[in-house]
Simulated assay, not measured.
Amino acid sequence: MKTFGVFVTIVCIMLTSLVSPTFAAEEKKNELVKNGKSAILLERDTGSVLYEKNADEKLPPASMTKIMTLILIMEALDKGTLTLEEKVRASENAASMGGSQIFLEAGEEMTVEELLKGVAIASGNDASVALAERIAGSEEAFVEEMNKKSEQLGLTNTKFQNTTGLPAEDHYSTAEDMAIMAKELLKYEHVTNYTSIYEDYLRKGTEDEFWLVNTNKLVKFYPGVDGLKTGYTKEAQYCLTATANKDDMRVIAVVMGAESPKKRNESIMAMLDYAYNTYETESLYKRHEVVDQWHNIRAKQQHMDVVTNESVSILKRKGEQVEDVQSELMYNDNVKLPLKKGQEIGVLKVTSKGEELSEATLTLKKDVEEAGIWTLWKRSMKELVKGAS
């Protein structure tokens, strides 16, 4: 890494004590989750753990598997390789899926947006497979991409065998890994436009009209909850990865292996109550906010906007303050051109008195092309003239 020496001092944030990157140890005595095999509570921007219970225990995730499915769907939409308006034809394989479904018929066509609603609201297994086949060519190839993404995210306790979470041997995850997946999914902030819908309809106005109702009832009954994904099988019992956004602070709460939907929801609400009663955040940068200008003599463009790939905040207990907060931009050495929009070129680190509070990837706002030979020659001549003067 090469530091360009760019320091942004955040004025107006004065503090008396630092916030540790993890808060879990001191809170283990307070058993927030009384029902459930494992659980975790995470602040989304900093990734700070506020509470955990057996968070690294490998368990079947059931339909929470679809969080990874949604990550790859949102990635494809973000890259432009998939559009919401595009129609997808359901295969025999997709239409044959059991469990939660939107009852696709083989050969039926739906838009990507309709199928996305089917996944995000109703947890449709058939909709998940239809989108997987569209993106990767087959469900098997899509599952390979799911596992590759898990590796990229550093999820050492997760392995997928399908896109849906239907029971399968050697298909597992942990509360901690599910929270990290949720954190990744929430980079695509518009995903909550779908996961927050309580009810909607597919095939509206036809004889096959289908009522979608959200499997996550907390989106209606807990203020601020706008996602993400429930799960249930006999083996997994009742699971939920939930997210809420209140007072400009987004948190993620996961419970796996609860005995009933009621007890699962009670555990999630207890964690959310604890988070919002105890902590608050200071927002520093919004996702894709311009934080610097990047220069590369070999680039066609001379001034390129550098942005963060996710929102950046600092976390603190209510009433506390943090002092001497600095943001340091650190760029990768030997960045090779051309570069695509969103490609990593460095990191932004937020520190206080030498302790790291938050980190985000730096990317470029637009594609960057390599300059032609004639342009490079003129620039070189200009630099020689400057050096001689």
Rank of each mutant, 00 (worst) to 15 (best):
T3F: 13
F4K: 12
V6Y: 10
F7H: 10
V8M: 12
L15T: 14
A24W: 01
E26Q: 12
K37P: 01
K37M: 12
S38L: 07
S38T: 11
A39P: 00
L42I: 15
R44D: 07
R44V: 08
G47P: 05
L50D: 04
L50I: 08
K53S: 03
D56L: 10
D56S: 15
E57P: 07
E57S: 14
E57A: 14
P60A: 14
K66M: 12
I67E: 03
L70C: 06
L72Q: 02
I73F: 03
M74F: 15
E75V: 04
E75H: 04
E75I: 06
K79H: 09
T83I: 03
L84C: 01
E86C: 04
A94S: 07
M97K: 15
G98E: 14
S100A: 15
I102A: 01
G107A: 11
T111F: 03
V119N: 05
G124R: 01
I135D: 03
A136Q: 07
G137D: 10
E139S: 01
E145W: 09
E145N: 12
E151S: 13
E151V: 14
Q152P: 01
Q152R: 15
G154S: 08
G154D: 05
T158N: 05
E169G: 08
H171D: 08
A175K: 00
M181G: 06
E184F: 02
Y188F: 15
V191S: 06
V191Y: 09
V191F: 06
Y194W: 07
Y194R: 05
R203T: 05
E207S: 07
E207M: 04
F210E: 06
L212F: 06
V213H: 08
K220H: 13
D226S: 03
T230P: 00
G231Y: 00
Y232S: 07
T233R: 10
T233S: 11
K246T: 06
D247K: 14
V251A: 10
V255C: 06
P261H: 11
K262Q: 13
K263G: 00
N265F: 04
S267R: 02
I268C: 02
I268Q: 02
D273C: 11
A275L: 10
A275S: 14
N277W: 00
T281M: 09
S283D: 12
L284E: 03
H303T: 11
V306C: 11
N309G: 10
E310M: 13
S313G: 08
I314Y: 03
R317D: 06
V322M: 09
D324R: 11
L329W: 03
L329Q: 10
Y331E: 06
D333E: 15
L337N: 11
L337Y: 10
K340I: 02
Q343H: 08
G346F: 09
G346K: 07
L348D: 06
V350K: 02
T351E: 04
G354Y: 00
E359T: 15
T361F: 02
L364N: 00
V368G: 00
A371N: 08
I373P: 08
I373C: 11
K378V: 10
R379L: 07
S380R: 08
S380D: 09
M381C: 12
M381R: 14
L384R: 13
K386H: 09
